[in-house]
Design a protein around this nucleic acid. Structure first.
Lengths: 346, 346
DNA sequence: CAATTCATCGCAATCGGTTTCATTCTAGCA
DNA sequence: TGCTAGAATGAAACCGATTGCGATGAATTG
C-alpha cells in the first residue's frame, strides 16, 4: 500500500518509494549535478511512472520567482492585441516564461484589479496596454515603476508619467505617412476621421495628419476633421456627415480601420466608387482589410515585433541582477504604410 | 526601524506592527467572525496603510484551491474564441474565479504542454477547445476525465472518447439550416466548401448539408463538394475551381466565413454579382461579415453563451462536494442562421 | 596508514498564508 | 464566590518544493 493520501504525487512520494529524501528528488528533477547520474535517472523514471506533476506554485513560493509574465490588454479578441500577445508568447517561450493574459475591457478600474490579481499570483513582470476609458491608474503605475518592479507598457501607455518603460509606435509619424501617401497620389482635399483626443495615440495620428497637410501647403479647417467616439461604429454616419460638407473631401484618412471600412460602405451605398470618387486609408492594418473590397490601405503597427520587444525588455528587467538595468526608456517603432486598392492614384 | 527584510508586506509584518499573531491577521482579512470586529477593522486599516498585497499562491498552496480556471484555445485572436473567453470571464468573475488563457496554436503537442503547465499552476478546472491538427491527446484527457478533474471541452472536442464533458453546437443542424436557407431562397445547384473531415465539426456541417439536399430531393455529386485545407486562404482558388465545373453552382455554403468572403471576392473579380449570379452563406458569424459587401450571411455559434455555460459547468464541478456531481454530459447548443445580403432570393 | 578531498545525499529551515487545537480571559449564572 | 461557557487570540503544523549546511563514505594523497 502506498502512503499517498491524495491522488497527486509529490516529490515526497517519489522519495519514499525510492528510499530517498525529498531534497534529493528535487535536485534530481532539476538536473542538479550534485546528484549522481544514476540517481537522477532513477528519480526521473520513477517520476514518470508515478505520473508526477510538479507543483509550480510551491516552487514559486519558495523561490520567489514564478517565471510567469502577466499581460493586460483591453480585449483579447482585437486582432492587434492578439498579434502582440503572439509576439510576447514567442519570446516568453524562448526564455522559459509562462504568460497569463487578462482583459481590462477598457475599464481602468478593472485594469487596476487585474494588476492586483496578477501581482497576487506573483507574476515576475507585467506587460500592459492601458484601458481606453477616461480614467488612469497613474498613482499605481508610478509606485510600481519607482519600486523597480519589471513592467512594460505597449501601444496605449500612461501619458502623463515622467518615465514610462514602454514600446510604442510613432503614431505621429504613422499619421504623417498615411496622409503623405494620399497626397502623393494626388489628393488635395483630405479629411481626417480622428479618435478620442484624450488618448495620445489618436492625438498623435491627428498631429501627423496636420504635419503632412501643412508640409504640402494644403488647407485644414474645422470641416476637414471629424471625431468618432467608438472606432467600431459611426463610420457610416461619419462619412455621410463628411460628404455633406463643402467642399467635399477627395480622400479620407481614418484613425481606425473599422471606421474606414464602414465609411467605404456608406460611400458605396451613395453610389460612389472607391478610390475614384473617394479614397480611403485606415490605421492598424486589420486582417479584414484584405477581405473587403476594395482592399483597404492602412498603417501597420508591427504588433508582433512590439510584443517581442516588450517581452524581451520585461524579461531582461527580471533576470538582470542590477536594479538599474531596468529598461525604463521609451522604445519607438516605425509604422509602415501598406498600400492596397482603396487609396489608388487619383 | 521596521523588521521587514524585503519590500513586500506579509501578514506577519502586519501582525508584528499590531502586536498580534499572523493567524489572527489572516482571519481578520478573511472576515472570519471569530475575530472581534474591532481587531478586524484595525487589521484592515493597517493592511491598507502598509500597502499589503496578499500572496494568492501561498494561499492556494495551503488551501489546495487556487480559484483559477485554465483556458486553452487554438488562437486568442480568432474572434470566435475571443467571444467564448468573454463568456467564460463573465461567469468566472461572478463566481470569484480568475481566468488564465493559453494558446495551443493548433498544435496538440503544445496543447499537452499547456495542460501540464496549467495543472502545475494548480488551476482548479480546465476549459479546452482542442487543437485542429491531426494529433490528439486522448490518453491524457481520458485520464483527466476519469480522475474526476473538472474539465470541460467546447467547440472542437476530442471525438473518439466515450464520455466527453463538453459544450458544443449542433454543427449538423447548422449545416442543415444554412443549406435549407439557400434552398428556401430558390437555389437548387448548391455547392459546399467543406473543411478537413477528420474534424467532426466540419464533418457534421457537411452531413447537415447532405441532409438538407437530400430532404429537398436535390442532387449532390462529387462536383458539388470541395475541400479547403486552411480556412484562411484558398477561398479564391476554391471558388474558381468550383466555377469551372459543370453545371455551375448557383449558391455556395462554405464551412467558414473566411473562405466565403474570399470566394465572394473571386466571384466579383470574375464580374459576377452576389447574390444574383452566385449566392453565399458562411459559418461562424465573424464580425467582418457586417463589413464586407455584400454583407455575408452566416451561422451563429453563440460563442458567449458557450463560454458562459462551459464555465458554469466547470465551476459546478469544482465547488460541488460529490464527485458524481461532475457535469460529464455533452451539452448541445442550437446554431442560428443570420441572414444578410449575400444570400438574397434568387 | 592517516589525513584530506570530494562526491553524494539527508536534515531542517523556509516561502506566506491557512487551519486545527489549545489557551487565555471575561461574562454569566448558581 | 466559584465555576463554566464562550469569545478572542496564540502556537504550531501544514501545503510542496527549494536550498544552505552538515554528515557520510569512498577515493586520493603524502
Amino acid at each position: 500500500m502506498s502512503r499517498k493520501k491524495s491522488d497527486k504525487t509529490t516529490i515526497h512520494d517519489i522519495a519514499y518509494e525510492l528510499g530517498l529524501n525529498a531534497s534529493t528528488v528535487s535536485r534530481a528533477l532539476n538536473n542538479n549535478l550534485a546528484v549522481s547520474k544514476k540517481t537522477r535517472e532513477l528519480v526521473k523514471a520513477k517520476a514518470l511512472e508515478m505520473n508526477y506533476q510538479p507543483n509550480y506554485i510551491a516552487a514559486a513560493l519558495r523561490r520567489g520567482r514564478s517565471n510567469t509574465l502577466g499581460v493586460i490588454v483591453p480585449a483579447i479578441d482585437r486582432s492587434f492585441f492578439g498579434r502582440v500577445i503572439r509576439g510576447i508568447e514567442e519570446e516568453a517561450d524562448e526564455a522559459g516564461f509562462r504568460v497569463i493574459v487578462c482583459q481590462s475591457f477598457d475599464s481602468s478600474e478593472r485594469e487596476r484589479e487585474m494588476v492586483d490579481t496578477l501581482r497576487g499570483l506573483q507574476v515576475d513582470g507585467l506587460l500592459i496596454s492601458v484601458a481606453k476609458d477616461t480614467g488612469d491608474n497613474l498613482d499605481l503605475y508610478q509606485k510600481l515603476i519607482s519600486s523597480g518592479f519589471p513592467i512594460q507598457f505597449f501601444d496605449n501607455v500612461p501619458s502623463s508619467l515622467e518615465v514610462v518603460p514602454a514600446v510604442i509606435i510613432d503614431d505621429r509619424r504613422g499619421g504623417y505617412a498615411a496622409t503623405k501617401h494620399l497626397i502623393d497620389q494626388g489628393y488635395k482635399r483630405i479629411a481626417h476621421l480622428r479618435g478620442p483626443q484624450h488618448l495620445h495615440i489618436y492625438r498623435n495620428r491627428y498631429l501627423g495628419y496636420l504635419d503632412a497637410m501643412k508640409e504640402a501647403g494644403l488647407e485644414v479647417n474645422d470641416d476637414s476633421v471629424l471625431e468618432i467616439v467608438s472606432h467600431f461604429d459611426n463610420g457610416e454616419e461619419a462619412f455621410e456627415e463628411l460628404w455633406k460638407r463643402t467642399p467635399r473631401p477627395e480622400a479620407i484618412f481614418s484613425a481606425s480601420d473599422y471606421s474606414a471600412v464602414s465609411g467605404m460602405k456608406a460611400a458605396r451605398r451613395l453610389g460612389l466608387r472607391v478610390p475614384e470618387d473617394i479614397a480611403f486609408i485606415g490605421f492598424a492594418n486589420e486582417p479584414f482589410n484584405e477581405l473587403v473590397s476594395p482592399t483597404l490601405s492602412s498603417v501597420d503597427q508591427q504588433p508582433i515585433t512590439m510584443g517581442q520587444i516588450a517581452a524581451t525588455r520585461a524579461i531582461k528587467g527580471i533576470t538582470s541582477d542590477e536594479d538599474d538595468e531596468q529598461p525604463n526608456d521609451r522604445l519607438v517603432l516605425m509604422p509602415e504604410v501598406v498600400v492596397r486598392e482603396s487609396s489608388g492614384a487619383k
